[in-house]
Simulated assay, not measured.
Amino acid sequence: MEQRSELGAFLRTRRARLRPEDVGLPDYGSRRRVPGLRREELAQLAGISVGYYTRLEQGQSPNASDAVLDAIARVLRLDEAERSHLHSLARHRQKARRRPRPEQLRPGIRLMLTAFGDVPALVIGRRGDVLAWNRTAHALLAGHLPPEAPERPPQRPNVARLVFLDPHTRELYADWRGKARDTVADLRMTAARYPDDPELAELIGELTLKSPEFASLWAAHPVRVCIPPTRVFHHPVVGVMTLHNELMELSHDPGQRMAVFTADTGSPSAAALRLLADLGAAPPSGGRGAESSHVAAGDAGQPAEGRRRS
Rank of each mutant, 00 (worst) to 15 (best):
F10M: 08
A16M: 08
R17G: 12
G24T: 01
L25C: 02
P26G: 02
S30A: 12
R32M: 04
R33W: 08
V34N: 07
R39A: 10
E41D: 04
Q44I: 02
G51F: 04
R55V: 01
R55N: 12
R55G: 05
Q60T: 06
P62S: 05
N63D: 13
S65T: 00
S65R: 00
D66L: 00
V68F: 00
A71V: 01
A71E: 01
I72T: 00
I72P: 00
L78N: 01
L78G: 05
A81Y: 00
E82R: 01
R83K: 15
H85I: 10
H87F: 15
L89A: 14
A90N: 03
R93A: 13
K95W: 03
K95N: 10
P100W: 13
Q104T: 15
R110T: 13
M112P: 07
L113N: 07
T114G: 09
V119I: 13
A121L: 08
L122T: 04
W133V: 02
N134C: 00
T136Y: 01
H138W: 14
H138Y: 04
L141M: 11
A142H: 07
H144A: 09
H144P: 01
P146F: 03
Q155F: 00
R156S: 02
N158K: 07
L162V: 01
V163L: 07
H168A: 13
Y173T: 08
R177I: 07
G178D: 12
G178R: 14
V184A: 05
D186K: 09
R188Q: 15
A192D: 11
R193F: 06
P195C: 06
D197K: 10
E202R: 13
L203C: 10
I204L: 12
T208N: 08
E213T: 14
A215K: 12
L217D: 12
A220H: 06
R224M: 09
I227F: 03
P228A: 08
P229N: 11
T230M: 10
H235V: 06
V237T: 14
V237W: 12
M241V: 05
E249W: 03
L250K: 03
H252R: 13
G255Q: 08
A259K: 06
T262L: 08
A263N: 03
D264T: 11
D264H: 11
P268V: 11
S269Y: 03
L273N: 02
L273V: 02
L275I: 02
R288Q: 09
A290M: 05
E291F: 12
S293I: 14
A297M: 11
D299F: 05
Q302P: 00
Q302K: 14
P303T: 05
A304P: 07
R308T: 13
R309F: 07
